[in-house]
Design a protein around this nucleic acid. Structure first.
Lengths: 191, 191
DNA sequence: GTCTATAGACTGATAGAC
DNA sequence: GTCTATCAGTCTATAGAC
């Protein structure tokens, strides 16, 4: 595997488990098996690493959302898939979504990275708006409010649920926080 | 003002704005006007400072929740007050609830502090369960689910909304994330 | 691309005078 | 209680050989 990819993988794991400021180039070097000075060849500043990290992560999530969109399943199923995406991202309750982890960290994040995070949130909300709009037409969500408001609320809900679950190191808290929402979704008919 | 109190105030501001690991005893010393070695007299280890910080914060929030409980207002109004509590905690969109800020930080938090955070979340959820149970009786929340599930969901919602709003430095994102929930609350009758 | 070596700054924490 | 002085450890980042 390319060194650059190995570095990104290691950094992503560390950032999502312990926070972006909680791992150092020394940790990365130990994990990947090169000397820490060598990392600066790939990412001169740690801010460059942050940018590359979010860039890759956002693209990956965007792909997954597109795949959910393109799959021919009922709207309720797409929303369940969205929730599951954030649930699985937690692993055993030890990790956070990268963007939650970064949003939460100190404000040592560079301006470009902050802009990336805002864009990521906006993209997720836009995807959700589209799905909730479809729900409006086929009535698959009970008590549906304005799609725009539902989208903003669900995004905040999954991110907050991750935070609470990780603090207690217990994934079940994530599931509990999602129960009320999932109960509003129409059951998928088995055909 | 007592030095100890001044230190706690300065540390709380810093932790909520930038994260617990993002301020140092040097920052505190500069802010309060003493030398950094003197801080160790009050809080020998930084972990002691974290503990005292959460202790004071949790007590303050508990008092505020009790006050809301004791006020003779409709259930819907109590829930609006809860949401406003978290909204105001954000100041201009620059701060987080202390416990959100700590939950989010690196896992350098000591075991006792992690236990405090879990307890804090549990206390908030318990308070909300009680309020939603009251709502069940007077029907002031539209489409009410199980009070337990509603409580877990609302707590995750306010915390996630804070995170998203702070990342974008825009309090309006908090308000937007709360819109759908607030719309489910019965209007308070003006008598 | 990766290495050794090092700079320069900062961290939390301690010892001991006052 | 607060001070000066200092410690050992960490961090990001750079220079220059290979």
């Amino acid at each position: 595997m390319e060194t650059r990819t190995a570095l990104l993988d290691s950094a992503e794991r560390a950032a999502r488990q312990r926070g972006f400021d909680a791992f150092s180039y020394a940790d990365l070097a130990r994990d990947v098996g090169i000397r820490k000075a060598s990392i600066h060849y790939h990412f001169p500043l740690k801010a460059d690493l942050a940018f590359a990290l979010v860039d890759r992560y956002a693209a990956r999530i965007a792909d997954q959302l597109t795949e959910i969109s393109n799959t021919d399943t009922p709207v309720a199923e797409k929303l369940r898939a969205f929730v599951a995406l954030y649930g699985h991202a937690m692993a055993n309750g030890t990790q956070l979504c990268l963007c939650v982890a970064l949003s939460a960290g100190r404000d040592s994040l560079s301006e470009p990275v902050l802009a990336q995070l805002t864009q990521f949130h906006e993209d997720c909300a836009a995807w959700l708006r589209q799905v909730f709009t479809a729900a409006q037409e086929d009535g698959s969500v009970i008590g549906l409010a304005d799609p725009k408001n539902e989208a903003d609320a669900l995004l905040a809900l999954v991110e907050g649920a991750q935070l609470i679950a990780r603090a207690a190191k217990d994934v079940r808290l994530f599931d509990r926080a999602m129960t009320a929402f999932l109960a509003r979704l129409a059951a998928t008919e088995m055909t």
